[in-house]
């Protein structure tokens, strides 16, 4: 229980820091939005009111934080959708982003586990070497390079998928048709990371003393690998999951924009280009919150599985 509270506390502290940094970005930016002549007059007035610009900075900071915590009030879009509540904009943009991120994750995990297991069991065979080559390619080459390659090959040379997101898509099926390529581009890296990690873990566990004991006490090879090596390898993999999640979410920021997916990723790129800082900051806080919660869940699961954490005591 103490462990759970600790983790939640750490998460809240981090979120608080991200928000503070965000406030700094909004208030301390050179060429502040509040004096920008491009911003329409009525919006400027609205902003002044909302951010209590006449109050001292610490008080402004307080209002900023209070607005987010109590009302989910992240401010108003200034450039992209002038006058609209940032929160509302983000909410409408969330579904495709969530779809891309979660599907990428849910595709990567089983595939990574399968390839990692195959590579470990077929260690130093042709199969293993082939997998290793792909692993090093997919780990090294950034997702946006893959996205370009896929876009060129499968929308131009062989036009199997739309180049850009089809804005007329309504059903999940139609959305998926547009999202296949971005999802594939985002999944390759995580699959490779997981494959490499699981392979290493499995090999270490398979050559461990306790696996030898499992075999000498009369388990078959399969039984001992599944019940001991595999189970124990899954334990530290939770750490990799965290980096997978942040990796996918980061990649999605760029890849969504490349395929014109109407998600928060694309929105972030546009808002940065346009200098619509409220929007940018709000999206970043959203991203932080989502990734922190996911990591928290992973951490707690880890605590539940690993008796050394759960029961307490050292390793």
């Amino acid at each position: 229980m103490k462990y759970v509270l600790q983790r939640i506390g750490a998460m809240l502290l981090t979120l608080f820091l991200v928000m503070t940094l965000s406030f700094m970005v909004i208030r301390l930016m050179p060429m502040s939005l509040f004096e920008n002549p491009e911003v329409p007059k009525e919006i400027q007035e609205k902003l002044e009111d909302k951010f209590h610009l006449n109050d001292p900075l610490p008080l402004q900071y307080y209002y900023f934080m209070e607005g987010i915590v109590t009302d989910l009030d992240f401010g108003i879009s200034v450039k992209l959708r002038p006058g609209l509540e940032v929160f509302d904009i983000i909410v409408t943009r969330l579904p495709p982003t969530m779809l891309i991120n979660f599907l990428s994750l849910f595709i990567s995990i089983p595939l990574g586990l399968i390839f990692g297991t195959i590579a470990a069991l077929k260690r130093n065979t042709v199969v293993d070497h082939v997998i290793s080559v792909f692993v090093i390619l997919f780990i090294s080459i950034p997702s946006f390079v893959f996205a370009s390659l896929l876009q060129y090959l499968f929308t131009f040379v062989w036009p199997l998928f739309p180049t850009l997101y089809e804005s007329t898509a309504v059903t999940v099926g139609q959305m998926m048709h547009s999202l296949v390529l971005p999802i594939v581009a985002l999944s390759l890296g995580p699959i490779a990371t997981l494959t490499r990690y699981l392979r290493g873990e499995l090999i270490e566990n398979i050559s461990s003393e306790y696996l030898l004991l499992a075999r000498t006490k009369g388990l078959t090879k399969t039984q001992s690998i599944v019940r001991h090596a595999f189970r124990n390898s899954m334990m530290p993999i939770t750490n990799t999951l965290v980096s997978l999640i942040t990796g996918i979410m980061g990649g999605s920021l760029v890849v969504e924009n490349m395929f014109a997916v109407p998600g928060t990723g694309g929105l972030l790129t546009k808002s940065i280009f346009a200098g619509d800082h409220f929007l940018t900051v709000a999206i970043l806080i959203f991203y932080s919150a989502i990734s922190l919660v996911t990591i928290l869940v992973v951490d707690l699961c880890y605590g539940l599985i690993d008796p050394r954490v759960r029961v307490g005591g050292g390793k």
Partner: peptide, 11 residues
């Protein structure tokens, strides 16, 4: 085994 510390599955 020689080494009981590593011969048991830790989890």
């Amino acid at each position: 085994f020689q080494d009981p510390l590593s011969a048991l599955n830790p989890i």
